[in-house]
Design a protein around this nucleic acid. Structure first.
Lengths: 339, 339
DNA sequence: TGCTGGCACTCGCACGGACAGAGTGCCAGG
DNA sequence: CCTGGCACTCTGTCCGTGCGAGTGCCAGCA
């Protein structure tokens, strides 16, 4: 469809525009790149590219800027992923290795991503759906009050306070704790419901059965609720580098970033851990129509337990950003696997 | 020093400027407020106020705007705290009562504060220093690996993985757990160090003693580390309402908001739970020189366990903001006390 | 057929002068 | 001590001009 040279012109336009933030003209293009043809020829190619919708001019007699479609083509066919340099990789690893707990891992990852890409970083906490149970603890706080603590293999801890329908003795509690753990430890969250289904029947006293049911339903509830993931964001100050047309651009982005639901969708409802780039209007959320999202899954083992990514202007350095995102995801995965 | 009427003029200037965001002149003042005097008189008063440093004019022959000193006087002597209306209070209470766990309480508080004040909200997690221990749990993960889980009376949970110098039997672990809990449950964090000092001596085996020491030092470390508090922020999109001179104003603020350390200092190193307003240059951090911070302590009992507050432009509705902050702090305290 | 140099044309933008409006300071009078 | 009036000083805005970048088209050439 498009000749090799025209693709080359598009690549040059994207690169220049990303660098200068200004519409790029035919003359400047031939000066900065060895295209081997004259500005006039480039102009013809540009006209063709515009015809196809890959580039556009903000005003007549201004240079061209890439459209979303243009960026898409660039990402899919013209640009690779720029790998991190060895020193960069070492720095990433060192920085992440200092983390003391899960919160710290996530916090450090966010900072790192934001700094490397100079954009807004978003990191999802490791998901519970794919996690397994490491331990369930039940603590008696008062005669009819129990605290449930759930510990996952990724080091995440969730707790819930439970008001029991009837007082529950220490012995029964210990019994329940033991039974519960023997059934669910090492199992996946998704499998827990069936595994504990018949637990109440093991108890003699009717009141105890009621309490056990309450505890179990709280446990299941926790599993479900926490599947709606938490996430952490950072680097919002980088939004100020966007451009001059700020207030209109930055506001909806900040709003979107506060809506966890939006962000979670953004990272990708798809479960596949592959890197994904969404450009401009490809984002379902309207406020993010002038931003691109680069996301990828990361995981402690072979499969992804969560996602992370960055949000930036459509005019971003895609190869570099993708490289940074991929590298960070890889190292976070390693760190999680070790702990 | 300043006559009653001059104070009245200052109040009028602050109110108008906060409302319109534009320098306010003598004529407009007499029109909008019943000062009972003519513009000329107001001009004299303004000259005096400017002389004293309470107001300033951005350029000759423009209206006046309050200085930091002017806002300070306004807050200290001219303005009260505007109480929330009954429906507002009910809404706050209802919204907070839906929270399921501590994270949720904090998250909801942030949203609430941001919405009520239309500014950036900052909420510190309940501090561990003043908290008491509700439970310490030790879980054996591997022969020489123990997980420490610490639960506070405010519902906060911290966990640490510990690599022991030598394998540690289940029996010893249970022993340690029991001893530890019997000593520290219900005690304040600050008192824990002395209480556990001689625990290793209770164990016969030298290797066990080593392990116990390791566990204890991790526990103490956790207490200290977590005293550097976590916090949650929200409502950053409200920053876009600041003004027209954005990029320069908003950037350092966003940067400051990412620096937890800065923010924690901001909320007030002082331990007193009283409401505090820091105006413009009163903030030690340079990037926040054009913002004001309203903070107050909140607590589950009589004393403050943490702080919360908002960050906004110096040109803010102080009475309203202070009212909202105070009300939210009060209700969060209640919620925490209940749980 | 495809590339090139040339040329006329179109805009956006920066510069500069003129103008209106808001606000001030000062002064003389009540 | 307050008031009305007056002259003055700015700023923000509007408009017209000129410049420069960039385009589109066309005729010529390989």
């Amino acid at each position: 469809m498009l000749s090799e040279r025209r693709l080359e012109v598009l690549r040059a336009i994207v690169q220049d525009y990303v660098g200068t933030e200004e519409p790029v003209g035919s003359k400047a293009l031939t000066e900065r790149h060895q295209l081997g043809v004259s500005p006039a020829t480039v102009r013809n190619d540009m006209a063709a590219l515009e015809e196809e919708g890959y580039i556009a001019q903000p005003h007549t007699s201004a240079g061209r800027i890439p459209t979303d479609k243009g960026y898409r083509l660039f990402v899919d066919r013209l640009a690779g992923v720029k790998p991190m340099t060895a020193p960069e990789r070492r720095a990433i690893q060192n920085f992440l290795e200092c983390a003391v707990d899960l919160d710290d891992v996530v916090a450090r990852t966010v900072r790192l991503l934001a700094q490397l890409t100079r954009q807004v970083a978003v990191v999802q906490y490791p998901s519970l759906t794919r996690s397994t149970v490491r331990h369930v603890e039940l603590l008696s706080m008062a005669p009819a009050r129990v605290m449930l603590v759930l510990i996952t293999d990724t080091g995440r801890v969730e707790q819930r306070m439970i008001d029991c329908p009837a007082p529950f003795g220490e012995a029964s509690l210990a019994d329940l704790r033991a039974r519960l753990n023997s059934r669910v430890v090492g199992r996946r969250f998704a499998d827990v419901p069936q595994l504990v289904q018949d637990l109440p029947e093991a108890f003699e006293e009717p009141e105890d059965r009621g309490t056990v049911s309450t505890v179990l339903s709280t446990l299941l509830e926790t599993l479900v609720e926490e599947t709606e993931e938490r996430l952490m964001i950072g680097g919002t100050a980088n939004l100020t580098r966007f451009g001059h047309d700020f207030p209109l651009t930055i506001r909806p982005v900040l709003e979107a970033l506060e809506e966890q639901v939006v962000l979670l969708k953004l990272l990708g409802e798809a479960k596949d851990p592959a890197m994904r780039v969404r450009i401009g209007h490809e984002n379902a959320y309207e406020g993010l129509n002038s931003t691109s999202v680069v996301s990828v899954g990361y995981g402690s083992g072979g499969e992804a337990v969560a996602k992370l990514g960055v949000v930036g202007p459509t005019r971003m350095d895609y190869p570099g950003t993708m490289g940074a995102v991929r590298a960070v995801a890889r190292y976070v995965g390693q760190i999680l696997a070790e702990s």
